[in-house]
Design a binder for these strands. Structure first.
Lengths: 297, 297
DNA sequence: CTTGTCGCAGGCTTACGGCCATGGAGTTCC
DNA sequence: GGAACTCCATGGCCGTAAGCCTGCGACAAG
């Protein structure tokens, strides 16, 4: 017969309390139940574990050793179960996340603030990377969740739209275009352009838009980080084309104007591995992210 | 709902084999059974542990961690059960034993040889001590079993007769009494006597016997160890009165003659704590001891 | 001697754990 | 593109186990 945890628990309680009656009470079962469980345990081991007397029970030498070991194992087991339940309840947990750098300036901070307030025990590890790499990280299992843009068809991944990002022109104060409610792509032809890395998804969109208008996108500067681009703009070196999420509001020395013709939109997607359950922590993050996306625009 | 070991085993198997079907086969249950067990485990934890797909199952991140921990715990648990069964089967074990020194020369070695042959894994720890101390060790729980002599009434201890020891005179070769089939106590009056420590149970018996005959037991030498007494005898320094079990047979230079008038008998008892189960190892030792006592006389 | 405590045994009920048969989703291969 | 296969989930059914209650015997204490 196999030895069950229940029997081990019964035995440990009997040893600790020195009485089947009290042990039964502590375990919330009747005393005959405990008698039976202990007999079964002894039969399963072929070993006498307790000496029963009129004043209670005393463990045998081997019983004492077993009880101590069982107690340790049961403690570990219960601790493990408790930890798992904490994870399930989103009290603790870690989400490994990949995100486009542009997300990091507005959407992500809002979502993280909301999450921290609601689920302070959850830790988010962020890998920021360009769209292609974001997808690769996800496929490799190095992250559980990704925020990126449209990806080539991939049965392994599954994307749901999060927000639609509009491209805006970041114009230095004092520039002729500064103060315009919106600009056209053609308006920018006269100014030096600050664009992002050709690897970046933003740049791909921009190039496509220029081509569609019959224009050539010839950047005066090419940078990797959005913050660098904004720095250059502030220094008056040119006009940058960036996603609105990256520009934010009210940057000193910079005027932001949506690009109206053509409107360049970029769908920000939440990407996850198809058929894989999200961790409870990821679910909590996702909820916070959706709220942040819904209100922030 | 509580988490059971069975569920943990099912889960570990599912993770290791990557398939419920194969895990079920490995565990010797049907596949639906495993499905149910895993669902119950997930419900008990409130946590998704496996992603089920058409190609089998893959653990979630938390599931993977849990599986590793469960596997370790289950291994420890099973090891513990195996060890307990080894103890029960007398494959391993330790007996803490207290014995009178006189037992150590004949009866005990025979019993130990027999036991070693039959149960080589059992270890015997021997404390040799005088009768009073033997009982004290037993009462204090420092030993499990004792070989001693009659003790004052004690409800805590329980004695069963093992063998009856006769007192013999150990006579040096060349002594006038040497070669006699038996001697009387009075015969010894003319020789220097070698007796044991007044603490010893043997000495108590000898003193009582002398007193009963109206004689005085005035030892020329008093020693603690029987082997010392025999050494003195061999050196021709006098006659020793010792239990037959201690003298053994055919010691060179020493003739042993039972003491006939009065016959001095000493019951050797096996003493154990009342109401306490003996360990399987002790049972094995006891069986060997009884056989040795039965054949050895 | 009585009383209380303790563990054990028997009888009964419930519910848990198991199997079988079946279904649905997805993959593979021709 | 469809058929066969694989794999997990579901539902119905049954046996056994694990639980409770009542009552008994053993033992210790008053």
């Amino acid at each position: 017969m196999a030895v069950s945890l229940r029997q081990a628990r019964a035995f440990v309680a009997a040893v600790r309390l020195g009485s089947l009656t009290r042990a039964a009470e502590a375990l919330g079962v009747s005393q005959p139940t405990l008698t039976v469980q202990l007999r079964q345990l002894e039969e399963a081991l072929g070993l006498r574990l307790l000496d029963r007397g009129a004043r209670g029970t005393l463990p045998t030498a081997e019983g004492l050793r077993l009880a101590a070991e069982f107690e340790r194992l049961i403690g570990d087991f219960d601790l493990l179960v408790t930890q798992a339940r904490d994870v399930a309840a989103q009290r603790v947990g870690t989400v490994r996340l990949a995100a486009l750098p542009s997300i990091g300036t507005t959407l992500l901070p809002r979502a993280l603030a909301r999450l921290r307030e609601r689920r302070p025990g959850i830790q988010i590890l962020i890998r920021d990377a360009v769209a292609r790499r974001v997808a690769a990280l996800l496929r490799a299992g190095e992250v559980e969740l990704a925020i990126g843009t449209d990806l080539e068809a991939d049965t392994e991944l599954e994307a749901t739209p999060l927000i639609a990002d509009r491209m805006v022109a970041a114009i230095p104060a004092g520039h002729p275009l500064a103060g315009r409610p919106s600009v056209d792509l053609a308006d920018l032809a006269g100014s030096p352009l600050i664009l992002t890395d050709p690897e970046s998804s933003v740049r791909v969109l921009v190039d496509r838009a220029f081509a569609g208008q019959g224009l050539a996108a010839s950047p005066a500067y090419e940078v990797t980080y959005m913050s660098t681009a904004l720095g250059l703009v502030r220094a008056g070196l040119g006009v940058a084309i960036l996603p609105s999420s990256a520009v934010g509001a009210d940057l000193p020395g910079i005027a932001a104007a949506p690009i109206a013709r053509p409107e360049i939109r970029r769908d920000i997607l939440l990407i996850r591995r198809a058929g894989r359950t999200l961790s409870p922590a990821a679910e909590a993050f996702l909820a916070a992210l959706r709220e942040a996306a819904g209100e922030g625009g």
